[in-house]
Design a protein around this nucleic acid. Structure first.
Lengths: 291, 291
DNA sequence: GGGTAGCATTCAGAAAAACGAATAAATTGA
DNA sequence: TCAATTTATTCGTTTTTCTGAATGCTACCC
């Protein structure tokens, strides 16, 4: 009288699902879950079988959600978050100091939310945030000037892989750059990968361009694009109703994905880092669906 | 870079926790979970270790929640329910007919909620509910006149053990029966265990009593007690602010627990039964905390 | 066309969890 | 005091899951 099928979903499988969706990559997900790729592959297969629905379109570029997966994701995220929250019920509050570096580009805009969330949850921790360019963080963390840093770029760094999203060509609504030659380009003027992504891509596609707008501030870049003055490269999640995405049909070359990683210092208090990483992941999850 | 401690609680452990709390009995919980008693004992130990808190006071009478357990229970229930809900996202709606028997005592009052919940969730199922006395259900289910029935009584039936709660002596607020002899007793006049519980207990304690109120309706019994006219036996969850609980300090003997079980017909559609059982359990969980 | 990245699958072995059965310890009830 | 109930624990066995390493497949990129 005890053989009931209606057993709740296993939260471990669900967690794997969420992290595969975050990273869009089985291998990275497996790494983050502390499992092997084959184990996660099997887990996902079991989850899909148990639900009777396919959750991901597998491709050689990675895993993208199916409609069913898209429907499941927010609920799964909520469930996992709830389970994580429950653990905090019995934990004593964290204390200490934490120096964290976050990019000063679009992620800087988003991640202030993570800092606020963290401050609300762990009021005993004194956080020093530093907003700067990803490329220097590697060294800052290695040298112990930072405890942890969020890094993003076209190549995943060694560290705690968080998520990825496509980079896209963006322009203001209603503007047609199809015929314009050379293309007017708005770009970030930084000593980092942001600068070279658009020009490299255009070079490869042998498309002629001119730099019409140059700025160090990500906010200014967004404004320039919205105004219809030029086109440029943005992370997909930045595109809102004022912007349109341009692609191959407009004669523009494909762009690499942007990968997010967190790097940690050996000397850091990992409990604090972990809590901050959690806040960051949660914040980014809230943003991703709009991507 | 992947060794993180902050792993969400495992939902299987949490489910075990919820069901132990429901049943108040490791052995029954294990039965319901389709595991052995030793496995559940170990699971609980692991959950407690992982939270760093003790969740149950173990006694030879069963398991009762500690303060920590009391705090965790509602969240755990919500989390498990959420996981169960998620499964429904991908299931096709149930159809068919289901004949279910529910007691016409206090549970009948509560379980109409379960019927309503079930109807809302599974509109394709035609439910026929029958409200009557527990003792006849055994036969009705065995003979196939009912697909399932909720049974309650001072002894657990063979079947799907749901939960238990104490029976208590109750009287209207502000009334003092300490000195009254013989005790004025209000009782249910039924051919079932309800009738014999109070009288048996009083006999054993050699306390003199007289039957001051006799009714077949549970509602009337409640009214009689509230009015201060007599004392009687109620399930603990029925005691509200109009009633007081009497115990040994008032010279009244201890009472047995009331056990709830669901029995199923061999010929019933178990998918439907399962869904109904889930609705019933969820409803009762919502009530229990007030017990 | 060759190299690469990424997922699926396989297999032997290791590790973890549960079984089943038995026993200990504690407490209640007769 | 004895019997019954209930949880805790133990132990050898079985089942399940994961590892690690390898292989196949496919699509993409130079």
């Amino acid at each position: 009288m005890n053989k009931f099928e209606h057993i709740p979903l296993n939260s471990d499988l669900l967690r794997s699902f969420v992290i595969i969706a975050d990273t869009g990559n089985l291998t990275h997900a497996a790494d983050r879950l502390g499992r092997t790729q084959s184990a996660i592959s099997v887990q996902l297969r079991n989850l899909e079988k148990s639900l009777g629905a396919s959750l991901f379109n597998r491709s050689v570029k990675g895993m993208t959600l199916t409609d069913a997966g898209e429907r499941l994701l927010p609920k799964a995220q909520a469930a996992v978050a709830q389970l994580q929250e429950m653990r905090r019920l019995f934990e004593e509050p964290l204390t200490g100091q934490l120096r964290v570096g976050i990019p000063d580009d679009y992620e800087g805009l988003i991640l202030t939310d993570a800092l606020a969330r963290f401050a609300r949850m762990h009021s005993g921790v004194e956080v020093t945030a530093m907003s700067g360019c990803t490329v220097t963080y590697d060294k800052d963390v290695g040298d112990g000037r930072l405890d942890m840093a969020v890094c993003s770029g076209p190549e995943p760094k060694d560290g705690f892989y968080i998520s990825r999203e496509p980079a896209v060509w963006a322009a203001g609504q209603g503007v047609n750059f199809l015929a314009v030659e050379p293309v007017p380009l708005a770009m970030l003027d930084r000593r980092c990968w942001w600068k070279s992504i658009p020009t490299d891509a255009l070079h490869r596609a042998r498309r002629d361009y001119r730099v019409a707008f140059r700025t160090e501030s990500f906010g200014s870049l967004l404004s320039a694009l919205r105004s219809g003055f030029a086109i440029g490269v943005l992370p997909a999640s930045c595109v809102d109703e004022d912007l349109q995405v341009l692609d191959g049909t407009h004669g523009l070359p494909p762009l690499p994905d942007i990968h997010r990683t967190i790097v940690f210092s050996d000397r850091a208090d990992m409990q604090l880092c972990e809590a901050m990483a959690e806040a960051i992941c949660t914040t980014l999850q809230g943003v991703q669906p709009g991507a």
